[in-house]
Amino acid sequence: MVKWWMPVICLMVFQAERAIAHGVALNYKTTQALEIQAKYDTGEPMKQAQVTVYAPNREKPWLQGRTDDKGRFTFTPDASIPGSWEVKVRLAGHGDVVTIPVGATQADASAKEGSGYTPLQKGVMTASVVWGLIGTALFFWRRK
């Protein structure tokens, strides 16, 4: 009885070894991936934020994922769907949407900052608003 089983077990082991010993082929091709960097306006990265990618003119999400601990998310858009791709990032009710041109104009698309005001521009805008409000206060104060 035992002798009858032996060749079967040997055959199974042989088969398993054959499966492990399959050759491996590594191929590569160059693609254009997009990296999203999600940060709060304090400069702090949005860690583990939920990312939804929408292909042009499609309502259903094309891809979903999460940012890493540095707020980065990388994906390769399908080059056969040219147009404006939308990437939505959301974490605890905070987030934004960015539109990325893919296709004919992709070669020109370089890194772009989100809302993109420099600290100087922000400072000048803040000072202008503050001055406007203080001016309003002084105007009505003097009228009294």
């Binding site: 608003v129 503050v130 409000l133 203080i134 309003t136 206060a137 002084l138 009505f140 104060w141 009294k144």
Partner: peptide, 11 residues
């Protein structure tokens, strides 16, 4: 009367 303080606190 309250406009000046409203403007200041809006700031």
């Amino acid at each position: 009367q309250g406009v000046p303080k409203a403007a200041l606190l809006t700031t």
